[in-house]
Amino acid sequence: MHPVDPAAQKLTDALPTTRSGDAASTERTIGRHRAPEPPPRRTRLGSTPVRVALATGVTCCLGLGAFAAARGTEDAPQPVRPMADALADRASIADERASRSLDRDAAPARVIPTPTASPTPTAARKAAPKKPVKPRRPRPVAGLDQVQMDNAKIIVDVGRELKMPRRALVVALATAMQESNLYNLASDVLPESTQYPHQGSGADHDSVGLFQQRPSSGWGTVAELMRPSYAARAFYTALAEIPGWEDMSVTAAAQAVQISAFPDAYAQHEERASTVAAALTV
Rank of each mutant, 00 (worst) to 15 (best):
D204T: 12
A203P: 01
L210M: 11
H198S: 08
S207R: 07
Q213Y: 14
F211K: 00
S217Q: 15
L210N: 08
G202C: 13
H198T: 02
V222N: 06
M226K: 01
A203L: 13
L210G: 09
W219A: 01
S201Y: 12
G218C: 10
W219T: 00
H205P: 09
G202I: 06
H198M: 06
V222K: 07
Y196G: 00
V222Q: 08
S201T: 08
M226I: 04
R214N: 14
G202D: 12
M226A: 03
V208M: 05
S207C: 08
S217H: 14
S216W: 05
G209F: 04
L225F: 13
V208S: 01
G220R: 00
P215W: 04
Q212R: 14
L210A: 12
A203C: 14
A203W: 14
P215E: 03
S207D: 07
E224M: 14
G218D: 09
V208A: 03
S201I: 00
A203H: 14
Q213A: 11
E224D: 15
H205Y: 15
G220L: 03
S201P: 02
Q212E: 12
L210W: 10
H198W: 07
Q212T: 13
G200P: 06
Q212H: 15
Q213C: 11
G220I: 01
W219M: 02
S216C: 08
M226W: 09
V222Y: 12
H198K: 10
L225M: 10
Y196T: 01
P197N: 05
T221R: 02
F211G: 02
S217W: 07
P215G: 06
A203E: 13
Y196C: 01
W219S: 00
L225V: 07
S217I: 05
G200I: 11
Q213I: 09
Q212Y: 12
Y196S: 00
S207V: 06
T221H: 04
L210C: 13
L210P: 06
P215T: 08
G202F: 07
G202S: 14
S216F: 07
E224P: 04
P215M: 02
F211A: 07
M226D: 04
D204C: 11
F211W: 11
D206L: 01
S201K: 15
G218A: 10
G209W: 01
G220C: 06
G202H: 05
P197G: 07
S207Y: 12
L225P: 00
P197L: 06
R214M: 13
Y196R: 01
L225S: 03
L225C: 08
L225T: 01
G220F: 06
F211V: 04
G209D: 04
G202Y: 05
P197T: 07
H198P: 03
W219Q: 00
S217R: 15
G218M: 12
G209K: 00
S207H: 09
W219R: 00
G200L: 10
S207T: 08
Q212N: 14
E224C: 10
G218I: 08
S201W: 09
W219G: 00
F211Q: 02
V208F: 04
E224A: 15
V208T: 05
S217T: 14
E224N: 11
D204Q: 11
S217V: 10
S207E: 07
W219F: 12
